[in-house]
């Protein structure tokens, strides 16, 4: 019965459209309930399939050129007709370009954060979340040698509440990266590391919480982009991020 009430709102939750407080309750439930997490995973797969299938048509170069010429001629004519039209044409280009740049950057950034969240959830839902199972950083780090095109340092966890569970290879935008899983008071936290230059857009800001049911921290250091994500508290995420920053 409890699951039924969650499930009725599952799509709204996955669309990032339920209030933040409810988002956290949802997240806690999905983590506890295998049935709901399975359902959530299927729906995430469905969303991604629709997204991939929906980006199907691309305008031809010829049509693009024709449109550019048409708009340019409209703008020239507008100039002749008077300042009002010219101002409107100029304004639409400025507003349009700014909106396009803003939305393009935002949409690229949101997409990366959304992919990171998907990778985190999908891995935890997997029956074998890690490929190298070890609490020893000296075992986990060498495992990545030859598998990813960069090297990174793992922090020393002595005197901290975190424990390393293991690691696995991962991909973001067809680029290989490292995925490490840590544990803190029964919460799993994922740390993703990719080469900065292989990722799209500017990712300096942390994500908008509306779309993110998790706490996330991201930064760039020595050409590598780090993401720390999980349902642990923001303070825990920050502590683990600081350990990584200190180790790099």
């Amino acid at each position: 019965m409890v699951c039924e009430s969650w499930r009725a709102k599952l799509d709204t939750y996955l669309d990032g459209e339920v209030p933040e407080e409810e988002m956290r309750s949802f997240d806690a439930h999905v983590r506890r309930c295998p049935s709901c997490s399975g359902d959530a995973l299927t729906r995430v797969q469905m969303k991604r399939s629709i997204q991939a299938a929906g980006r199907r048509y691309t305008p031809s170069a010829e049509f693009r050129k024709r449109m550019q010429q048409k708009i340019a001629s409209k703008r020239r004519r507008s100039f002749g007709l008077g300042w009002t039209f010219a101002a409107a044409a100029a304004a639409i280009i400025v507003v349009g370009t700014l909106t396009s740049v803003y939305l393009g950057t935002r949409s690229g950034k949101d997409r990366v954060f959304s992919e990171i969240a998907d990778l985190h959830v999908a891995t935890l839902a997997s029956s074998s979340p890690v490929d190298v199972i070890s609490t020893d950083r000296h075992t986990v780090k060498p495992w990545f040698q030859g598998k990813i095109p960069f090297a990174f340092n793992l922090p020393e966890l002595q005197n901290s509440e975190f424990s390393l569970l293991g690691g696995r290879m991962t991909y973001l935008d067809q680029t290989p990266g490292a995925h490490l899983i840590y544990d803190v008071r029964k919460h799993h936290i994922s740390v993703f590391i990719f080469q900065e230059r292989s990722l799209p857009g500017r990712l300096d800001e942390n994500p908008v919480s509306k779309k993110q049911p998790f706490n996330v921290e991201t930064w760039s250091q020595a050409g590598l982009r780090y993401f720390v994500i999980g349902d642990a508290s923001a303070a825990d995420i920050d502590s683990l991020a600081k350990l990584f920053k200190a180790a790099s």
Binding site: E4, G38, S49, A53, G54
Partner: peptide
Amino acid sequence: TLPAAEETPESILLQRSDGWLVQQAL
């Protein structure tokens, strides 16, 4: 309410990443 989707036909199809089928359905 949509039924629970543990191992449904469409989840099997989606796992096979058959984008063409999703395009058809769309």
